[in-house]
Simulated scan of single mutants.
Amino acid sequence: MSERSNYYSIGKVSSLCNVPVKTLRYYDKIGLLVPQYRKEGSNYRYYEHNQLLALFIIWKLRLLGVSLKEIQSIIYNSDTTVMEQCIVTRMNEISQTIHELQEQYAVGERLLNRLHEGDMILQAADTKGVDDGIRIENIPVTDVIFTRRIKSDYHNADVSVDRWFELFEMASKHNLNITGPVILTYHNAPLEQFFNKDCDLEASIQVSESRPSTEFKKFGGFTAVTAIHVGKNDEIIQVHAKAIKWLNQHGYEISGPISEEYVISPVDIGNEENHITKIIIPVKKA
């Protein structure tokens, strides 16, 4: 067969369609796009015009992430129904990937914000001293998912990793975004969590919304004396004691269970010296 103007060499196809020659040869090898004509003696490949159109279809489907095997079936059958089903399936997969990436981004954004908040607290502590962080503030109401039960042989210096993982699993089960740090609330008399073997411990974490379930509640909506502890958890009792002394000296009394909000926690960074915990003591005027 002689060369004619409606045939395109592999180099011309590569140039026109911006597809590497290596890719075209691979498509030929697997039978996806076989040149219509090969020149005897040289094995030069030549394509018809309609094959350029097929190559454009292949390019669009590859852009969607459709596998070569699926594309081969679509091209071979020339069935729009098969193509439609393939595209719908792929779009659903893309949608799921987008959702997962958005969740990953949100996790990174929340952690970055807390690390930034922690840096600001550490800078303030370096210049003013941690004790200056004791103050009165209104704790806003937030939705939290929580667990509450007696923890035997409780040691405040230890991290209740089991409770923390439980919270994350609960949020995942309800398909909720976590929007804040872990909060531990001690339903004991003030400071008892440092001396009792058993502790009535509530672990909670802020989530994007509440659900009609006993696993959800509101946290906040009260006035509190707050204090910042920086460093190892086994030294936090000193800040608790200073905050309680401060509120007594300023005419307040404790009006609810004391909580610890883990701004920068042991599951965020390994350096204990940079762990930051916010102590929250509900109060009212004495």
Rank of each mutant, 00 (worst) to 15 (best):
S172W: 02
I178A: 06
S172E: 09
I183Y: 05
S172C: 07
V182G: 04
H174G: 08
A157Y: 05
F168H: 13
E169K: 10
Y186H: 10
I183C: 07
W164I: 15
D158C: 14
N175F: 08
I178N: 01
T179E: 05
S172L: 11
Y154E: 02
V182S: 01
S172I: 04
V159G: 01
W164K: 09
T185S: 10
N175E: 13
R163I: 11
S160W: 00
T179G: 02
K173I: 11
L184G: 03
L176W: 08
H174W: 08
M170L: 14
H155S: 11
M170C: 05
N175Y: 07
Y154F: 15
I178H: 02
L176Q: 11
A171H: 00
N177W: 06
N175C: 13
G180W: 08
L184R: 00
V182P: 03
F168I: 09
F165D: 03
E166Y: 06
A171V: 08
T185V: 12
E169H: 07
E169G: 13
V161E: 02
V159L: 04
W164C: 15
D158N: 15
T185H: 04
F168K: 06
N177V: 12
W164E: 04
K173V: 11
K173Y: 15
Y154H: 07
E169C: 14
F165L: 08
V161R: 03
D162N: 08
S160L: 07
D162H: 09
T179S: 11
K173T: 10
V161Y: 09
W164S: 13
H155M: 14
S160E: 06
D158I: 09
R163D: 03
Y186W: 14
G180N: 03
I183Q: 00
Y186F: 15
N175W: 02
N175T: 14
L176N: 11
A171Y: 05
E166D: 12
P181N: 02
S172T: 13
D158T: 14
N175D: 09
H174K: 08
I183E: 00
L167S: 01
S172M: 04
G180A: 08
I178T: 05
I183R: 01
N156E: 09
N177Y: 12
A157P: 06
R163V: 08
I178D: 00
S160R: 05
F165V: 15
I178E: 00
T185A: 04
P181K: 00
T185M: 06
